[in-house]
Amino acid sequence: MKKRKIVVGITGASGAPYAKRLLEVLRTREDVELGVCLSATAPEVWALECGGNLREEIAPLPIWGMRDYNAPFASGSAGWHAMAILPCSMGTCARVAHGISDTLLTRAADVMIKERRPLVIVPRETPLSVIHLENLTTLARAGATIMPAMPSFYGKTKTLEQAIDTIVGRVLDHLGVEHDLLRRWGDPDLRVSKEERS
């Protein structure tokens, strides 16, 4: 079986539960080879929002060091298929948008852009300044998919976990990984009755 090679970048923006859920799904897939890279502040925010030690929680997944350019996804010739940065801080957005490959995470994103492979950016900040919006626009023009962490509720979402899955499911869609995390628009069970509309 040929595996789909996917990089997950985790930054110190709020939103670590999204990353935790994405890793939970991907690490169980036999058809996915997974690499993980972190920003300097990702472990601190993970501890605050998810509890525990990030590195210990996702072991034995390989977590590459911030400057470990021996990581396979640091080069386009290695043929990694896709990357998601989730959550993505505005600082990381700015560096990637302007080609500043100062860490393995930003280098991996740069590789995805130059190789024209899927790069999913899940920004987590509010409100967004003009600077943020311009950097996100630059990334979109370069081919990245900008997917803000904005849960949907038309699937009759009732729990925080279900809300998280509406984002993680859409990220998986754009990484090319099949899943059943969310209810799709057009699902007969989601049709609104005349009574509910009135």
Rank of each mutant, 00 (worst) to 15 (best):
E44M: 13
V45A: 04
W46K: 04
W46S: 04
A47D: 02
L48H: 13
L48M: 14
G51A: 11
N53T: 10
N53E: 12
N53K: 08
L54C: 06
L54G: 02
E56Y: 01
A59E: 14
A59V: 12
L61D: 09
L61I: 14
L61W: 01
W64N: 00
G65Q: 12
G65V: 09
G65E: 15
M66H: 08
D68M: 10
Y69V: 12
N70A: 15
P72Q: 09
F73I: 09
A74S: 15
A74R: 13
S75E: 05
S75F: 05
S77P: 05
S77D: 02
S77T: 15
S77H: 07
S77Y: 08
A78F: 03
W80K: 10
W80Y: 14
H81L: 06
A82I: 10
M83G: 02
A84S: 13
I85M: 07
L86D: 01
P87L: 11
P87K: 06
C88N: 04
S89G: 07
S89D: 02
G91D: 14
C93P: 03
C93Q: 02
A94V: 05
R95V: 02
R95T: 04
V96H: 00
V96E: 00
A97L: 09
G99V: 12
S101Q: 13
D102K: 13
D102I: 13
D102M: 12
T103L: 09
L104T: 08
L105G: 02
A109R: 03
D110S: 14
D110I: 03
V111H: 00
V111C: 06
M112H: 03
M112W: 03
I113K: 04
K114P: 01
E115I: 07
R116T: 07
R117D: 01
R117T: 06
P118N: 11
L119T: 01
V120G: 03
V120S: 04
V120P: 05
I121W: 00
I121P: 00
P123V: 07
P123G: 05
E125K: 07
T126R: 12
L128T: 02
V130C: 05
H132M: 10
H132P: 05
L133I: 13
